[in-house]
């Protein structure tokens, strides 16, 4: 079994951003993404997903390191000042590198 290293980029942010965020990801050449509803607490307070304005999402993107860097830089510039957003990266192992 051949395994390959890719980057997992995880973004946790406000659900209100989902539409624009997805457009950004497509524009920045992410081949795919997974979105889940999330709740939690950060320095912008508790976001408990009780209703629209406090809903959070977690977006996961598997891609190569350069794409991940490019996405991270773009999101940081566009959204960090005004939105509740964190993102982090980790190395992961995938079996089918051509997919990502």
């Amino acid at each position: 079994m051949h395994s390959h290293t890719r980057t997992l980029l995880t973004i946790v942010t406000e659900a209100a951003l989902e539409g624009t965020l997805v457009r950004d990801l497509d524009r920045l050449h992410a081949h795919g993404y997974t979105i889940t509803d999330a709740r939690g607490k950060g320095n912008r307070g508790v976001r408990d997903a009780g209703w629209e304005a406090s809903a959070n999402i977690r977006v996961e993107v598997v891609c190569d390191a350069e794409t991940a860097e490019a996405i991270a830089a773009s999101l940081q510039e566009q959204y960090y000042d005004d939105y509740a957003m964190i993102l982090f990266m980790s190395d992961i192992t995938v079996l089918r590198p051509q997919k990502f």
Binding site: E14, A16, L17, G19, T20, E52, A53, Y79, D81, D82, Y83
Partner: peptide, 9 residues
């Protein structure tokens, strides 16, 4: 709120 969040972040 939804519109303002996107248009006046």
């Amino acid at each position: 709120p939804a519109a303002m969040r996107i248009s006046v972040p």
